[in-house]
Structures are given as structure tokens and as C-alpha cells.
Design a protein around this nucleic acid. Structure first.
Length: 260
DNA sequence: CGCCCGTCCTGTCCGC
DNA sequence: TGCGGACAGGACGGGC
């Protein structure tokens, strides 16, 4: 689930329920999700502190505290951040629960990919956890997109998903963007012409603009995502039978008629 | 450098 | 009904 739009949704949840709230308690039903600290260490760092404005970089959610710590959350494939009332029954996959003055924020993650890191809230310390990330994909203009991806040797899809090039694009979005741009996901980056670069940049921003308010990649009508689960999926635009293959190591769906 | 693979985990679905 | 295997929206490290 969690690609840029999803994590942006989690950021909004954290902003609405957490900003300026004091951390009253930290409960860690899934301590193995804490990658560089312990439940005790987390409690010491956060308890009685107020949370500051949350930020997002690519698929990372940054929850700073006002005293200069930051909780870094990565959601892997199955993570979410849910607001809850302390009386709400815990979900079996709740791994970290921040008890705030006005409710709880619960980090939930079925498969235990991703995790929770504690960091100082400064760029170097955060980068030490996240690794080098490219500029966030949201709002990236055409020139900058080409600058970031242009020297890649592999497939367009692989470049879009490489978090060091641009941050935030995962498997579903990569397919969606290629589909909207009319570019086959396996095309070599070096073979793209000027018009294709423009189409790719437009498709990227259009797709994000629609997905970000939804807080997810919508599986609606008119979206490639909407037919992804179907056996003999057809192109929502032209009706051709879609092709499936593994590209860049991931399951990939595209339209052989609309994309070349 | 890019690509493929296995690995980290858990749950679901499909075929036998 | 039970079971094995494949697969799932992420990312890393190793090997080629």
C-alpha cells in the first residue's frame, strides 16, 4: 500500500491528531519493529515531549518532537498509521502506540517490513537512517525529473522506483505513470525523446495530484490500478488486453497498444 | 552500473 | 478439508 500518496495521508493523520500534542505514554506491542532503539529508549526520548509538525520525504514519515528528536516511520508494504481512542481494541498488527493527550496514534504493520527509527531531528542524522533519497516526487517539475532520471541505464520503471533518484514512487504508481504517459515500463531511459520526457513528467504530476488527496493510489475507474487484480485485465483507455511481466523485479502491468 | 536473487515477515488465494 | 506454493503496493545486500 504505502507509496507517496499513502504516506502523505499518514502525514495528514499525524498532523491532525498529533501536532502540539504531548506524548503521555509509549506502548510497543511489536518491539522488533524498533530498528535502532528499545521501548525504554523510545519512552525516554518522547515521553512528556510535544510533537511538532510532521513531515514526509518520499515514503518516509518524520514525526519530530519539539525538543529535537524525530521518529522515522517506514511502512514497508503493509504499514499504516491510524488514529485511535485508547478504548479502541488493539489490532493484532499494532506495533507501536503513541498515547497522546487527545488520543492515540497507532503504527500498524502486518508484514514486518519497514520499521521505526529514533533520530535527532537534523538532516544528517535523518539521512543516516533513510539513506540518500532523491527529491520528493510530488511537485517535481519536468526539467528536474529529467535531470534526476536522465542518466539511468535501465528501464523507465526501475528509474522511477529508485528512491535515490526520486523519492516516493512504488510499484503501482510506476505502472500508473507509465500507462498515462504512453511509455512501456521496460523502455530504456536513454531512448526517451523530448516529448516522452514531457509526457512522463505530466503523467507523474497528474497521477500524484489525483492520488494525494485520496491518500492512496485510487483503484477507481479510469485507473490502471482499478483492473490490476483481474485475470484478463483490459486497458481502461482502449480496451486492449493488458500485458503482465516482471520488470525491475516487480509485477508489472501495461497496455501493449497504448504504451510503446 | 543494472539486474536478478534471496531475505526479512504474514496473510490470502489457488490448485491438487 | 488440508496442505504446499506462489504471490503481495518495499528495500537491502550479494553475486554476476
Amino acid at each position: 500500500m504505502p507509496e507517496l500518496p499513502d504516506v502523505e495521508g499518514f502525514r495528514r493523520v499525524a498532523a491532525a491528531h498529533g501536532t502540539r500534542q504531548r506524548v503521555a505514554g509509549v506502548s510497543v506491542p511489536g518491539p522488533d519493529m524498533l530498528r535502532n532503539t528499545s521501548p525504554q529508549g523510545l519512552g525516554r526520548a518522547l515521553k512528556r515531549r510535544r510533537l511538532a509538525e510532521p513531515r514526509r520525504h518520499g515514503k518516509w514519515l518524520i514525526l519530530p518532537s519539539e525538543d529535537g528528536h524525530a521518529l522515522l516511520l517506514h511502512f514497508g508494504m503493509t504499514g499504516t498509521l491510524v488514529p485511535a481512542d485508547p478504548d479502541d481494541e488493539r489490532h493484532p498488527h499494532d506495533r507501536l502506540v503513541l498515547g497522546l493527550d487527545n488520543g492515540e496514534l497507532r503504527y500498524r504493520n502486518m508484514r514486518k517490513f519497514g520499521g521505526v527509527w529514533l533520530s535527532d531531528d537534523d538532516a544528517d542524522a535523518i539521512r543516516a537512517v533513510t539513506g540518500d533519497l532523491g527529491p520528493d516526487a510530488l511537485g517535481l517539475d519536468a526539467a528536474r525529473l529529467r535531470e534526476r532520471l536522465g542518466d539511468a541505464r535501465g528501464a523507465v520503471k526501475a528509474a522511477l522506483m529508485n528512491q535515490e533518484r526520486i523519492a516516493g514512487i512504488g510499484n503501482l504508481l510506476a505502472d500508473e505513470v507509465c500507462w498515462r504517459a504512453g511509455i512501456a515500463p521496460g523502455r530504456r531511459v536513454g531512448s526517451l525523446g523530448d516529448e516522452e520526457w514531457a509526457a512522463l513528467a505530466d503523467a507523474l504530476q497528474e497521477t500524484l495530484a489525483a492520488a494525494v488527496p485520496a491518500g492512496r493510489v485510487p483503484g477507481d475507474e479510469g485507473w490502471l490500478t482499478g483492473v490490476r487484480g483481474e485475470d484478463e485485465a483490459r486497458c481502461p483507455r482502449c480496451g486492449a488486453t493488458l500485458r503482465r511481466a516482471r520488470i525491475a523485479g516487480r509485477s508489472t502491468l501495461w497496455c501493449p497498444r497504448d504504451q510503446s
